[in-house]
């Protein structure tokens, strides 16, 4: 089963507004998503909020695909109470590219983006408080990157702070 094209009033309106900034509108397992150029992410979120009632940012997260040329996929999930509709927006970015923060559009993005930074090392441009949130400040690795094994992730920190010899 592959993703099928997604077409609706919303996609037509977005296409008109953003043109080739949006690369694809698809639907998989009945769930609609769009893929946008990284620069367009925040304007699209803004437009979704202001013009189309998508006023609740459910989640911001990322997926690491190390073998792809643009290895990080950032996923924004938005929901509209008025339309009872949930959609996803994805952007694909290269290593080191800094996406703009969504915190200016939805306050909830603050912690969600901090968690993405904490786990993947993706920094968000213009974020009010770009620090780790769950792991200790001095932790060495970004755990959810695929190159990091679950074992011995930061042996030095663990030995120093917890006094556990194995470093696990």
């Amino acid at each position: 089963m592959a993703a099928t094209p997604w077409e609706s009033e919303l996609t037509r309106a977005l296409k008109e507004e953003f043109g080739d900034q949006i690369l694809e509108f698809s639907s998989y397992l009945g769930q609609n998503f769009l893929v946008a150029k990284p620069d367009a992410a925040i304007p699209i979120l803004e437009s979704l909020k202001e013009n189309h009632d998508f006023d609740y940012l459910v989640d911001v997260t990322a997926v690491h695909w190390p073998e792809k040329p643009e290895p990080f996929e950032i996923v924004y999930i938005v929901y509209s109470f008025a339309r009872n509709e949930r959609i996803r927006m994805k952007i694909r970015i290269a290593e080191g590219w800094k996406p703009r923060t969504a915190a200016a559009v939805h306050l909830t993005a603050n912690w969600l983006e901090r968690e993405v930074y904490d786990m993947f090392g993706i920094e968000f441009e213009g974020h009010p408080d770009m620090r780790r949130i769950l792991l200790p400040e001095e932790w060495a690795t970004f755990p959810l990157r695929k190159e990091n094994s679950i074992l011995k992730m930061d042996q030095h920190w663990v030995q120093e702070n917890l006094g556990i010899e194995s470093g696990q």
Binding site: M119, R132, I133, L134, L135, P136, P143, L144, I150
Partner: peptide, 11 residues
């Protein structure tokens, strides 16, 4: 926060 972080998503 994070005192109880176990890395569930990595697991």
């Amino acid at each position: 926060i994070g005192y109880l972080h176990r890395g569930v998503e990595k697991i």
